[in-house]
Design a binder for these strands. Structure first.
Length: 306
DNA sequence: ATCCAGGAACTGT
DNA sequence: ACAGTTCATGGA
C-alpha cells in the first residue's frame, strides 16, 4: 500500500473501495471498549511499540487516511511498525476485488456488499489479544464479554493520559502470565477461562506460541490444529483468531451464533440454520468465507432495514 | 423468571 | 461418530 510521511504525520492511501466510516461504526459499537476511542470521526489508539507507548490519531482526508502523534513526534524507527499495525487493524492491505466479484452473484451477500461497500475486516493484530478476546467471548453475551475485557485491561494494561483523555494498551502476556486463577475469578471470569488464558499467556511467555511461526505454516489446517491443540481453544476460537489476527480470508467460524442469527434474519428463516446447512451455502464463498462472515455480522447491528 | 449468549470439554452410548 | 451434560454468569 502506498504511504507518505509528511513532517510529523503519515498519510496512507488504501486501495478502493474503503470506508473509514464503516471502520468507526464497528470500532464504536460498545461504550465499554477502552482499547481505542472514537470521537467526532477521529480514531485514537495507544500502541506499545518497542517498550514505548505511542498514541496514534487517525483521521480521514479526502484522498487518504492521516496518522498523527498527539504525544509528540513519532519516535524514529517506529513509523514502519505503526503503518503495519494500522494496515492490519483496519484491513487496509486486504484485496476485496475477488470477494466482491463472488458476492455479487450470491443472493445472500449481494445486498450486503452494496450497502456496506468498503467495509474491511477489522483485525486484532496482536495474537495474544485476539486469543484472549476470543476465549472471553465464548458462550457469553457481547456486553458481558466487553465488561470482562475492560476489567482485565484496567488490572494490568498500561494507561496514558493525553489532553485529558485516558488511553489503554492491552496487557502483555508477560504480565498476564503472572496473574493467578483467583485474580481472574475476582473479575468474574470462569475457572476454565482463567486456566485457558493463563495457559496461553505462559505458552507465549515461553516462546511456544508465536504469530510469526503460525504464519509460516504451509497450510491452514496446520495452523488450525496448532491452535486447537491448546486446551480451551476449540474450532470456533481457532477460526476466529485466524480471521481476526492472521488475516486468513477463508477462515470460517461456522458454529458462530451471530453468524447463524444473521443468516436466519437475512433469509427470513423460521429458525436458525444448522451447521451443515451453513456449510452447504458457504461452498460458493470458498476462498472468502471470512469476508462473508464479517459482512453478515455487520448486518446484525444495522439499525436501518436493508 | 426464563432463555440465550460471537463454545469447549467431558461423558456415555 | 454422535448426543447429552456441565461449566458459570450476565443481559434482555
Amino acid at each position: 500500500m502506498k504511504w507518505n510521511m509528511v513532517e510529523n504525520s503519515i498519510e496512507l492511501y488504501p486501495a478502493k473501495p474503503f470506508s473509514f466510516s464503516e471502520c468507526l461504526l464497528f470500532l464504536n459499537r460498545s461504550n465499554l471498549e477502552n482499547l481505542h476511542r472514537v470521537i467526532d470521526g477521529v480514531l485514537y489508539k495507544l500502541l506499545n511499540i518497542g517498550e514505548k507507548n505511542v498514541l496514534i490519531k487517525i483521521t480521514e482526508s479526502p484522498s487518504s487516511l492521516v496518522i498523527d502523534f498527539p504525544m509528540g513526534e513519532c519516535p524514529s524507527d517506529t513509523g514502519e511498525k505503526v503503518i503495519q499495525f494500522v494496515e492490519e487493524w483496519l484491513g487496509l492491505n486486504q484485496d476485496m476485488a475477488g470477494f466482491y466479484t463472488m458476492a455479487a452473484h450470491d443472493p445472500l451477500l449481494s445486498p450486503l456488499i452494496d450497502k456496506y461497500t468498503g467495509l474491511r475486516i477489522i483485525g486484532i493484530p496482536d495474537l495474544f489479544e485476539a486469543l484472549v478476546w476470543a476465549v472471553i467471548g465464548q458462550q457469553i453475551n457481547l456486553t458481558f464479554a466487553y465488561t470482562l475485557k475492560k476489567r482485565l485491561v484496567e488490572l494490568c494494561g498500561e494507561r496514558v493520559e493525553v489532553e485529558g483523555l485516558q488511553h489503554w494498551t492491552f496487557p502483555s502476556y508477560e504480565k498476564v502470565a503472572n496473574l493467578t486463577v483467583e485474580d481472574f475469578r475476582n473479575m468474574q471470569f470462569t475457572g476454565r477461562k482463567a486456566e485457558t488464558i493463563l495457559h496461553i499467556a505462559r505458552m507465549m511467555h515461553r516462546g511456544e506460541l508465536l504469530k510469526e511461526s503460525l504464519l509460516l505454516e504451509n497450510d491452514v489446517q496446520a495452523i488450525h490444529h496448532q491452535l486447537t491443540s491448546i486446551k480451551g481453544v476449540g474450532p470456533w476460537t481457532a477460526e476466529y483468531v485466524m480471521m481476526k489476527s492472521l488475516q486468513l480470508p477463508n477462515a470460517f467460524p461456522v458454529s458462530d451464533v451471530g453468524l447463524h442469527n444473521a443468516i436466519k434474519d437475512r433469509m427470513n428463516l423460521p429458525k436458525k440454520p444448522t451447521v451443515n446447512e451453513i456449510k452447504e451455502m458457504a461452498e460458493v464463498w470458498e476462498g472468502w468465507k471470512a469476508y462473508a462472515t464479517f459482512y453478515l455480522w455487520r448486518s446484525l447491528y444495522d439499525e436501518t432495514a436493508l
